[in-house]
Write a protein that binds this DNA or RNA. Structure first.
Length: 113
DNA sequence: TGGATGACTTAAA
DNA sequence: ATTTAAGCCATCC
């Protein structure tokens, strides 16, 4: 399975009203330093993928070529109850804890602060 | 095969 | 709080 497919699979497990960071996704996939690649993968995500639930380490909507995407992301997040305070998601309140995400491989604790 | 490309991240200034 | 610089990486061409 390609890294990309794995990313999609994991993103689909993020519950409504919750968000994950690029780094978190990468870590959960066993590639703690592939955060950047995660973002790149989302660039070509299927239309039904809840890509809007992925934000950067600071809880903000990462800048991108087209502004429309950022707008959509903010709107979609708001629609499911994820509010942005000063332009950032309050991770302490909406961060996805991804428990049991990788029951198979051990020692993959998502390390975030 | 090799280099370019970002929806990243962290450390430092 | 902001900005810069430098790693890091799966894809794409």
């Amino acid at each position: 399975m390609s890294f990309r497919a794995a990313v999609f699979g994991l993103v689909r497990r993020i519950p409504r009203g919750r968000v994950a960071t690029y780094g978190q996704i990468a870590a959960l996939l066993g590639r703690p330093r592939a955060a950047r690649a995660v973002g790149r993968a989302l660039g070509s995500a299927p239309g039904d993928l809840p890509w809007h639930r992925v934000v950067n380490a600071r809880g903000g909507v990462s800048p991108r070529a087209r502004m429309s995407g950022m707008l959509t992301q903010r709107i979609r997040l708001a629609q499911e109850g994820v509010a942005l305070r000063r332009g950032r998601v309050v991770l302490s309140a909406h961060a996805w804890r991804g428990r049991g995400t990788l029951a198979t491989r051990g020692g993959l604790a998502c390390d975030w602060r």
